[in-house]
């Protein structure tokens, strides 16, 4: 019998929040977008920014400070990829 039981991923909210909120692929857009004006990109950006604000409040409540831990990746292609552009046909409203 196992001495240490393994819980499947999605069974504990705290373990899930620990991962899904500030890890993985993060679209980091607010800095530029505030200058852009009204188009699709601002919509996307608002979505992202707002959810992160919410997270900060949430994290405080849970006693989790969202420590911007330095990532110890495999030296994978992780890291920031600047200048990714998002062209969007849907925005061509002008």
């Amino acid at each position: 019998m196992a001495v240490v039981e393994r819980s499947p991923g999605g069974t504990s909210l705290i373990d899930v929040l620990d991962r899904v909120l500030d890890k993985g692929i993060i679209i980091d857009a607010w800095v530029r977008v505030s200058l852009v004006g009204i188009d699709l990109i601002t919509v996307e950006a608002r979505v992202v920014v707002a959810s992160i604000d919410t997270y900060l409040r949430y994290a405080d409540a849970l006693g989790l400070t969202p420590g911007r831990a330095t990532q110890g990746t495999l030296g994978a292609g992780a890291g920031s990829i600047d200048g990714v552009t998002s062209r969007s046909r849907a925005t061509e409203r002008a």
Binding site: V20, K23, I26, S80, V84, T85, S86
Partner: peptide, 14 residues
């Protein structure tokens, strides 16, 4: 692999 993939993307208008 949440903890091993950190990609921060910045959108910018073209």
């Amino acid at each position: 692999p949440y903890n091993f993939v950190t990609i921060r993307l910045q959108l910018q208008p073209t």
